[in-house]
Computed example of a mutant assay.
Amino acid sequence: MSDLKFNPRTLILLLMILIITGFRLLVTFNSDALKFANFSSIGAVALFGGAYFKDNIKAFAFPLLSLFLSDFILATTIFKEYSNGFLYEGWYWTYLAFALMVLVGRLLLNKINAVSLLSSTLSIVFIHWVVTDFGVWFKNPSYTQDFAGFWLCLERAIPFEIRFLEGTIIYGAILFGAFEILKAKFPALKFQAQQAA
């Protein structure tokens, strides 16, 4: 027990993820259910977790857990009609896309600046668009099962992806900006090799 050390960096990162994920629920519960569909914090949370958690398990587990908890709450409340009793149809495509988005944060955000943040944001929006809509298109009788059908599915998703981009930019600016300010004020939050955040 004496070897256990309190890591304030991990605690602050986790709290920030939970708070910003809470905004996903707050916005959804206080608006027309589909008006802000995809305008959420999950893209920013994926990038944030990938960028700041140096431990691979935490980098993937904490953002995925926040997505699961918010999905579960939404699937059992206001989106119950779209739920299959657990989450929603095709949830695994969303989680695959989300894991890939965390990976982008790990690979592209070694150094946090406006250019790397914008390029990683555009990358994850593209991943979200293609992967989640592949799940919508695949074996769906509403679309022909060829490139033209997939392209039509992608076109129909553009308004949702624009909102996803907007949400990722806004929530990302809040998350990354706040943590960089906190790191400047509290040096204990800076990553040190001996602490695996």
Rank of each mutant, 00 (worst) to 15 (best):
Q145H: 13
W129Y: 12
L65G: 02
L103G: 04
D32Q: 14
P159E: 11
L189P: 12
F36R: 04
A114H: 05
I162P: 07
S41C: 07
L103Y: 09
F62L: 09
L15K: 00
I170G: 00
K183L: 09
D3I: 08
G22M: 00
L47T: 02
A33M: 13
L47R: 00
E89P: 06
I19E: 01
F36V: 06
T94Y: 03
F126P: 08
Y88F: 15
T94I: 10
F53Y: 13
L69V: 08
L11Y: 03
V130F: 15
L67A: 03
L47S: 01
K58V: 00
L69K: 00
E89I: 15
L103P: 02
L182G: 07
E166Y: 12
A75C: 10
I20Q: 04
L14H: 03
S31W: 09
S120W: 13
Y52R: 07
E81Q: 11
N140F: 06
V130T: 05
G149S: 11
T76W: 14
L108P: 04
N113Y: 11
S142G: 09
F134T: 12
A46M: 14
M16L: 15
A97W: 03
F86C: 03
L26E: 09
E161W: 11
S66D: 01
C153Q: 12
G149Y: 12
Y88R: 06
P159R: 10
Y95V: 14
A97N: 03
F176D: 07
L109E: 01
F186W: 07
A99R: 11
E180S: 10
Q194H: 13
V115D: 08
Y82G: 02
G172E: 06
F147L: 15
F79H: 08
Q192R: 15
F191Y: 13
G177Y: 15
I169N: 02
G22K: 01
